[in-house]
């Protein structure tokens, strides 16, 4: 089963120079298969850097990460990533964006059409298949982005504050819909955010990081029942976790 492990990972920008800056210091983590983990922390704690390293976009100066025992070295289609910025290709229609990954690997037209139909519907964009991204709202473009990553069938989903730029209502709907999709696919998800409520609502486990250098400060198991409902956001158990974690973040 796909499982990501981070072993003694450290990263220093400008290593061996006077201006060296350590952003990650001896991180050890295991992300079990099928789990939903969030990483929270104030800006500068290195959470995005850590995620980019797991994607293979960034090489750590020390330590290593493995996926199913294979050392992660560069990007490949096993670890999909959703970015905070808008990464939907504006020159492709919604459907073509969604089937981009399979098309790279030579999927036939019929296979592409099948994948497009399935995932466009899964992310709630049925009827928008032939629209250009410029015709969609920010929330809808994020849906395209998520559909595109899912359609590529990665082992692990890495999400870097994907809903950071959305308004509050859209954000909550996207969170519920993301959980629905996750529930149907049971893929390992690693979700970086600075929004505690978002982290608690979504995750099985929350990793709290402290900044300069980035270290793991606390790991919180979230035992709220699934499926998660919006009303849970106001329950005392939810708020207790929020209060506890809030105190740990450096304000």
């Amino acid at each position: 089963m796909p499982e990501i492990k981070v072993n003694h990972l450290s990263h220093t920008f400008g290593k061996n120079t006077p201006a060296a800056l350590t952003v990650l210091d001896d991180i050890n983590l295991t992300f079990p298969s099928g789990s939903f983990t969030s990483i929270v922390g104030t800006s500068g704690c290195g959470k995005s850097t850590l995620l980019k390293m797991m994607a293979g976009l960034f090489v750590p100066s020390d330590g290593e990460m493995t996926l199913d025992g294979d050392v992660i070295n560069g990007t490949d289609n096993r670890r999909g990533m959703v970015f905070q910025q808008d990464a939907v290709f504006p020159w492709m229609t919604v459907a073509k964006n969604v089937s981009y990954g399979p098309r790279l690997r030579g999927a036939s037209r019929a296979e592409q059409a099948e994948i497009e139909a399935k995932w466009v519907e899964m992310v709630g964009l049925k009827g928008f298949e032939d629209r250009w991204p410029r015709e969609l709202s920010g929330g809808m473009r994020k849906r395209v982005d998520i559909g595109r990553v899912y359609a590529n069938n990665p082992d692990v989903l890495l999400m870097d504050e994907p809903f950071g730029a959305l308004d509050a209502q859209t954000k909550e709907r996207m969170q519920s819909d993301l959980l629905k999709t996750w529930n149907q696919t049971k893929k390992t998800v690693i979700f970086v955010t600075h929004d505690l409520e978002e982290a608690i609502f979504l995750s099985d486990r929350i990793i709290v990081m402290s900044a300069r250098p980035g270290r793991i400060r606390h790991i919180e198991e979230v035992s709220l029942p699934r499926p998660r409902e919006d009303a849970m956001r106001l329950e005392s158990e939810f708020l207790d976790i929020k209060r506890k974690l809030w105190g740990m973040l450096e304000h």
Partner: peptide
């Protein structure tokens, strides 16, 4: 971000 997105899609 487009380059990174394409790379992480394989």
């Amino acid at each position: 971000v487009y380059v990174d997105a394409a790379a992480t899609l394989g």
